[in-house]
Design a protein around this nucleic acid. Structure first.
Lengths: 157, 157
DNA sequence: GTGCTTGCAAACAGTTTGCAGATAG
DNA sequence: CTATCTGCAAACTGTTTGCAAGCAC
């Protein structure tokens, strides 16, 4: 079992316990969705989650996906990354504001390992007099794979 | 004439020259919209711009507003700030990525005067191997005025 | 006069909501 | 048993598009 698989299992268990503790019902659809969300390093869209769910429950609906995502959002267990010109994306692993890297070609979203965001945060609060409660730091560009493609190297799948 | 008013005039002239130079038609509706966009330190929504336009041209339509905004966006003369759960906002004065402060209570958007964003940008590029092309740095919180209100002064709806 | 622009209405896409029937606890 | 959850369809919202008429150049 890989480290990644262990992380997924731990996160899944966390989510299940929290819902159980708060008295929410653990329907099969919810369990499956929690499992998809617990997969590490992924930032799926609602419709990607819907597709995954539908492979197990052929009659499920996108409304169920959204209702569960909104529940988890309210419980601070999922971070929603809204995009006005694209599907929103969901992070079930780090449900607190943090920087994201968005590839404008393949739309993959990753979490860069950087510090310095908090420094900037405090600087903004100091300078502006705002009480800063949240933030959204997105960097757009070409991921290493797509950068190669743009240079003329043929696409690999 | 205030410094602010001078800035607005200069920016308005810039926009008009660019459209003229590129052969776009300077209709009265466009001129009025350019004037609204050139107002400094403002981040209006399409419908706010529409309201302003309608006070001069009672039969104008929101489609005209969007068409002109998209034209200016393509010419890199307007920065669009998309919000998945709210109207998009437009910055006609600094049409390049820069940090924003968003008040979650009154929805006012301002430009904080900070440095350090570029440092973070280069750090992200170095660490990730991405070719970073753009960014979006938003800080959410309570502006000084709304912070006071939250401290006990009753909210008005 | 030419063809870009406007203004209206309809289309569009992602998300949310209402409700009747199903089901977890 | 019963309150919550599901699944369907309709509603909703901000933005875009198609097209006929208007008007800048």
């Amino acid at each position: 079992m890989t480290i990644k698989a262990i992380h997924t299992q731990v996160r899944f268990d966390q989510l299940v316990s929290k819902l159980k503790r708060l008295g929410y019902r653990l329907t099969p659809q919810r369990m499956a969705l929690l499992r998809s969300l617990a997969v590490e390093n992924d930032h799926p869209s609602a419709s990607q989650l819907y597709d995954q769910l539908r492979s197990q429950f052929s009659t499920t609906s996108i409304a169920t996906v959204y209702k569960t995502l909104n529940l988890l959002k309210d419980l601070d267990e999922v971070l929603e990354l809204g995009f006005s010109d694209d599907d929103n994306r969901y992070d079930g692993n780090r449900p607190y504001p943090h920087p994201h890297l968005v590839c404008i070609r393949c739309r993959r979203i990753t979490d860069p390992v950087i510090d310095g965001a908090d420094t900037l945060l405090h600087k903004v609060a100091d300078v502006s007099g705002y009480e800063v409660i949240g933030h959204r730091l997105d960097f757009f560009g070409l991921c290493p794979v797509c950068k190669e493609h743009e240079l003329g190297i043929p696409e690999r799948k």
